[in-house]
């Protein structure tokens, strides 16, 4: 299997993504509040993430006289979403986007910490899970790319934006913004030079999308 030697870049990217993820409490929230600036690459007004007009609700006290509502976080409605999709839904989600679930997905329950019967565990984005997700995504994306005549040619300045937009829209269930399309197309046309197989180039592009928050969360 031919791979792309981007270790240095990936380490930098890893650190960058981690720092972005951990930069501030506001950054942890996946979606902006209504009215928040969400332009691509722009900043989100922290106030829009907060509950600036706190409604007066009922008071609930425990037997010790403690107001139980004091544990509530200062967040706006609709901002703290983005749960990781559980393993149990991935086959359906891959089918929705790729047309079929990758064959190896069925044996990956352990990689995704699928809960025991009659039990529930909130899925988490672990290193093992992300790695497995990428491998499974690449496998499924390659099958799709091999089946599509339009993927016989490598992505270029014309086809990459168009295919990225279409695939992002399908995977994220929404119209992608310009920045997302540009990032995807740039990756497709400038970061895969060492991969000579056009279909594998497309598979890398699609696997990236399928390992991003837009697809991984709901």
């Amino acid at each position: 299997m031919k791979t792309i030697s981007l270790t240095t870049v990936s380490l930098a990217a890893l650190l960058a993504s981690s720092l972005v993820a951990c930069a501030s409490e506001e950054d942890a929230l996946e979606t902006p509040a209504p009215g928040a600036s969400s332009s691509s690459g722009g900043t989100v007004d922290p106030q829009a993430l907060e509950c600036t007009e706190k409604p007066q609700g009922r008071t609930y006290v425990d037997f010790g006289g403690i107001d139980l509502a004091t544990t509530r976080l200062n967040e706006n409605i609709g901002v703290n979403r983005g749960r990781i999709k559980p393993y149990s839904v991935l086959a359906g989600e891959y089918t929705r986007v790729l047309g079929a679930a990758p064959a190896s997905l069925a044996g990956q329950a352990g990689s995704f910490d699928a809960p025991a019967p009659r039990y529930f565990e909130e899925p988490r984005a672990t290193g093992v899970g992300i790695s497995a997700m990428y491998g499974v995504s690449f496998e499924g994306a390659l099958v799709m790319a091999k089946a599509g005549a339009k993927y016989a040619a490598a992505p270029d300045a014309t086809t990459a934006p168009a295919e990225c937009a279409a695939f992002l829209g399908k995977a994220f269930s929404r119209t992608p913004n310009t920045s997302e399309i540009d990032n995807c197309a740039t990756f497709a046309t400038t970061k895969l030079a060492k991969e000579t197989n056009p279909q594998r180039k497309w598979a890398y592009v699609f696997a990236n999308v399928l390992t991003s928050t837009g697809f991984l969360t709901y």
């Binding site: 791979t3 981007l6 270790t7 990936s10 997302e180 990032n183 990236n208 999308v209 928050t213």
Partner: peptide, 26 residues
Amino acid sequence: VNLRRIAPVLVLLAAGAVALRGRSAK
């Protein structure tokens, strides 16, 4: 984990981390 194997996803994560956050159904 072989970093080379997951390099593409890491690149996209870094580049798109800001852009990809901030979407919701309204």
